[in-house]
Design a protein around this nucleic acid. Structure first.
Lengths: 211, 211
DNA sequence: CATAATTTGTTATTTTATTAACAGGGCAAA
DNA sequence: TTTGCCCTGTTAATAAAATAACAAATTATG
């Protein structure tokens, strides 16, 4: 697909494409070959129009009677959101959260690979933690450079997030996913995504409370 | 604040209010008493106008010269998003992810309390895990009813998410935060929020990759 | 006292995202 | 064959969200 067009895809569509792919992979494993827009929509709790619109944006055409070819669509989404040679990811903070992420990705056939974990705790450093080699924070700069890691996940406690992010950027990380409760600052050329689970939980709590 | 007005606050504003509060709490602990809209905005990577707009919606007025009173604003946000008597939360799946959430909330002064964890693993059942009493899944229905739990967090593996959600709804849970990679179905009267960290990571990867 | 500098609160405008509407196509069944 | 149904793809309309613009207020300062 044309690289110029890819840049014009909205953030939200990128997110949904990632979600579509997950659903499609599941269907593919179950032996399905084709799927309708409204089937995808039901899985993701959105409308069929939204799905068709997103697929239109990426220039994929389905079959009028059979719907979309699952395998083809998976491949096309991969062409758009994946890097051809894969991307290396590091986790900063191998506590419960960091390990959960590491475990989740190990063994998964994906273009994203967790190649390193960093932690301050001496009993983790030098060992494999959840299938990922764990290094001390002091080694981070070197490892990031050596491995060519461009993506980092922050799962350190909130009070260490800012310093961790600063160090990551200095070491050359270009994209940060911050799961700590503390927002961090990055230069303009670094992509930052922050997610705070407390906010999500408070949102649920709000819509559940008896007004 | 008027309960009718509260219902009209958009989802996104609710989320931001939660984030504002977190930032405000941090400033409050540091001894600050007042804050300007652009200060809040900088922390959250949004614009000052957005902040003022949100605060307008909840009817809070700041001081022209000093900005917003941090304590008052924290209290007002609490009045809107918190339940007066607090809300009980259960975690389904006490793996790394579940424990991370449990740990995060224990000891925190909040209107949301994790009162139970559920797991299939016998070595966890009957013990405290990350400060939370852990029960077997079979006991879930009873515990949820007894404790009056209305909010549940799903941190089980993807292949168990659907069944877990079904059981939660049956037991009377009214709000679900699903962290598993598998989307679930809930009846209309149950609020569902789904978050998939892979999607977030793929989004970061997309914007970092060299097009 | 008047002026400049800030900041809030609110209305207007723009942009973005979602939903609706519908033309066109292909298959199935009458 | 032809009618009807159910898809896709696309344009049009609507809704939601974010941004811009600016009046009003307050304090500091010359």
């Amino acid at each position: 697909m044309d690289q110029e067009l890819i840049k014009k895809i909205p953030h939200k569509t990128i997110q949904r494409l990632s979600q579509y792919r997950r659903a499609l992979l599941l269907c593919f494993e179950q032996g399905k070959t084709h799927i309708f827009s409204h089937e995808i929509a039901n899985i993701q709790h959105i409308t069929a129009v939204q799905v068709r619109r997103d697929l239109m944006l990426i220039g994929y055409s389905g079959n009028l009677r059979k719907g979309y070819n699952i395998k083809d669509l998976i491949d096309l989404i991969g062409e758009i959101i994946d890097s051809p040679n894969g991307q290396k990811v590091a986790i900063f903070g191998m506590g419960n959260f960091g390990r959960a992420i590491a475990k989740y990705f190990t063994g998964r056939r994906s273009k994203l690979t967790i190649v390193a974990g960093f932690d301050v705790s001496p009993e983790k450093v030098g060992k494999q933690v959840a299938g990922v080699p764990c290094y001390s924070v002091e080694e981070a700069q070197q490892i990031i450079l050596e491995e060519g890691i461009r993506i980092g996940i922050i799962t350190v406690p909130g009070d260490q997030a800012v310093e961790t992010a600063r160090m990551m950027v200095e070491a050359g990380v270009k994209g940060i996913l911050n799961f700590s409760p503390t927002p961090v600052e990055v230069p303009e050329n670094v992509f930052l995504e922050e997610y705070d689970m407390v906010t999500s939980l408070e949102k649920v709590a709000f819509y559940v409370k008896e007004h």
